[in-house]
Amino acid sequence: MSSWLELLTDNFDALASGFWVTLRLVVGAFLVAAVVGTLVAALRIAPSKWLQRLGGVYVETFRNIPLLVLLIIAYSGLRRAGVPIGTWTAGIAALGLYTAAYVAEVLRSGVFAVSRGQVEAALSLGFDQRQTLRRIVLPQAVRTVISPLGSITIAMIKNSAIVGAALAVNDLLKEARIIASRTFETEAAFVCAAIGYLLLTIAATIAVRLLEQRYAIRR
């Protein structure tokens, strides 16, 4: 057990820089996923058939293409087409847009999980459409989507490991592999990488737990 600790202290700077790259990637992609995911969910529940369809096309496109393929299209594909896109933009955009498709689906299902009767009751009590959504539907929807959104965030953190490999970015996994190839301490290097990812995923898990408690119904 001491071997990975030793490796961690010997290569702390490299691992920390890799962790920092992964963290920035994950935070950037999370913001993209949250914003785009919410917009797409809004399209999916919009009163117009065409807007709903547009949202559907987004979800099916980004959810059904492997992330690795999206990354290659976003970086090599665009560069070959003459767009001088950087690794950060390509990595955050591909990971964020991919995750946004899942976020949109969870938000949509959360809204639909609130029973039709509640909407009817609200409308009959004199709430208008907007108030019904804001005061009745969304607060209940939030409660049901926290846990699945947490799962999506954790999946996204793990998916970020693909970005380093696909775009030649020195993220946490790449730094660990560089150390492994130099020191031949393969197991210890990957244990360090795993710990780094666990730090991020456990932080996400705790955040989800706190949010769940905050929005829990006191029974």
Binding site: S76, R79, A168
Partner: peptide, 18 residues
């Protein structure tokens, strides 16, 4: 330094100007 798994990736990166 941009470190990749295989030299074919280096060829791709120099061709696309990365």
């Amino acid at each position: 330094r941009r470190l990749v798994d295989s030299y074919s990736e280096c060829l791709e990166l120099i061709q696309n100007g990365a």
